[in-house]
């Protein structure tokens, strides 16, 4: 058991972790629900979290390695109250069904738009190809990403 300190959604936290625990296990013990382990292989994106501003698969990331890091999860928006532009676009386009993969898609879309504010459809598909939606809400998600890009541009 090791004590780690990191910043979680803007707040300093400490946690006790075992070396074999991954980030999803840790976050769930801290009461967060947004990152979920599904495929367990980093392929589906349900466990997406941001570590030092970069998206990673929480199911393939040792919890102990969060020591000293800045960690952001989907819950960060909830704390701030309002849905952000990406979430608003997902809501507007009905870009989810069962919702299990949705936090991962939202986080990845934020990353995409931060790097590339006006992605082409091909760029959207490539960037999000590592996130799976078994309900296959893909057409709606593509439209939501495009809408979010337009709202961001209009607001900039």
């Amino acid at each position: 058991m090791k004590t780690i300190r990191f910043e979680l959604n803007g707040e300093p936290v400490t946690a006790q972790v075992e070396p074999h625990h991954n980030v999803v296990e840790l976050l769930q013990t801290m009461g967060l629900r947004g990152a979920r382990e599904s495929c367990g292989q980093g392929l589906c994106g349900c466990c997406t979290v941001l570590v030092d501003g970069l998206a990673v698969s929480g199911c393939l990331y040792f919890a102990a390695q969060l020591d000293g890091a800045r960690v952001d999860t989907i819950e960060r928006t909830e704390r701030e109250g309002e849905l952000d532009v990406v979430q608003q676009a997902f809501a507007e386009c009905g870009a989810f069904q069962c919702g299990f993969c949705t936090p991962g898609f939202v986080l990845m879309t934020r990353q995409l738009l931060a790097h590339n504010p006006a992605p082409s459809e091909d760029e959207i598909r490539h960037y999000l190809s590592g996130n799976l939606c078994r309900c296959a809400t893909y057409p709606e998600i593509i439209r939501a990403v495009q809408l979010a890009a337009r709202i961001r541009k209009a607001g900039a």
């Binding site: 980093g42 392929l43 994106g45 997406t48 970069l54 998206a55 990673v56 698969s57 393939l60 990331y61 990845m108 990353q111 490539h126 960037y127 190809s129 590592g130 996130n131």
Partner: peptide, 12 residues
Amino acid sequence: LRTLANVRVRNV
């Protein structure tokens, strides 16, 4: 690299 695994894996 653009088609190697996915963004999250490439980040790590």
